[in-house]
Computed example of a mutant assay.
Amino acid sequence: MLVTDSLLAYTLAATLLALTPGLDTALILRTATAEGGRKAFHAALGIDVGCFIWGALVAFGLGALLAVSELAYTLLKWCGATYLFWLGIQLLLRPRQQFNLRLENTNPASNWFLRGMLGNVLNPKMGVFYVSFLPQFIPTGHSPIGWTFLLVAIHVLIGTLWSLALITATHYASGVLKKPVVVKWMDRATGCLFLAFATKLAMSRR
Rank of each mutant, 00 (worst) to 15 (best):
M1S: 04
L2Q: 15
D5W: 06
L7S: 03
L8D: 14
A9V: 02
Y10S: 08
A14M: 12
T20E: 06
P21I: 00
P21A: 01
G22L: 05
G22Y: 03
D24L: 02
L27F: 04
I28M: 04
R30K: 13
T31S: 02
T31D: 01
A32F: 02
R38K: 14
A40S: 03
I47P: 13
F52R: 09
G55T: 00
L57P: 12
G61D: 03
L62P: 08
G63D: 14
L65M: 13
L66G: 06
A67Q: 13
L71Y: 05
Y73M: 12
T74I: 06
K77G: 00
A81R: 13
A81D: 02
A81T: 06
Y83A: 02
W86V: 15
L87K: 14
P95D: 02
R96S: 07
R96F: 00
R96L: 00
Q97R: 14
Q98A: 14
F99G: 06
L103Y: 08
A109L: 11
A109Q: 15
S110P: 05
N111P: 09
L118G: 10
N120R: 09
V121F: 07
L122W: 06
N123D: 05
K125R: 15
M126D: 08
V128I: 15
V128D: 01
P135E: 03
T140L: 14
G141Q: 11
G141I: 00
I145V: 14
I145N: 12
I145E: 15
I145Y: 10
G146V: 01
W147T: 03
W147C: 09
W147K: 07
F149N: 10
L150A: 12
V152L: 09
V152G: 07
V152Q: 11
A153I: 01
H155Y: 11
V156D: 09
L157Q: 11
G159Y: 01
T160R: 09
W162T: 12
S163W: 00
T170D: 00
Y172G: 03
S174G: 15
G175F: 00
V176N: 10
P180M: 00
V181G: 10
K184V: 02
K184Y: 03
A189W: 07
A196M: 07
A198H: 06
L201W: 07
A202R: 10
A202Q: 05
S204A: 15
R206L: 12
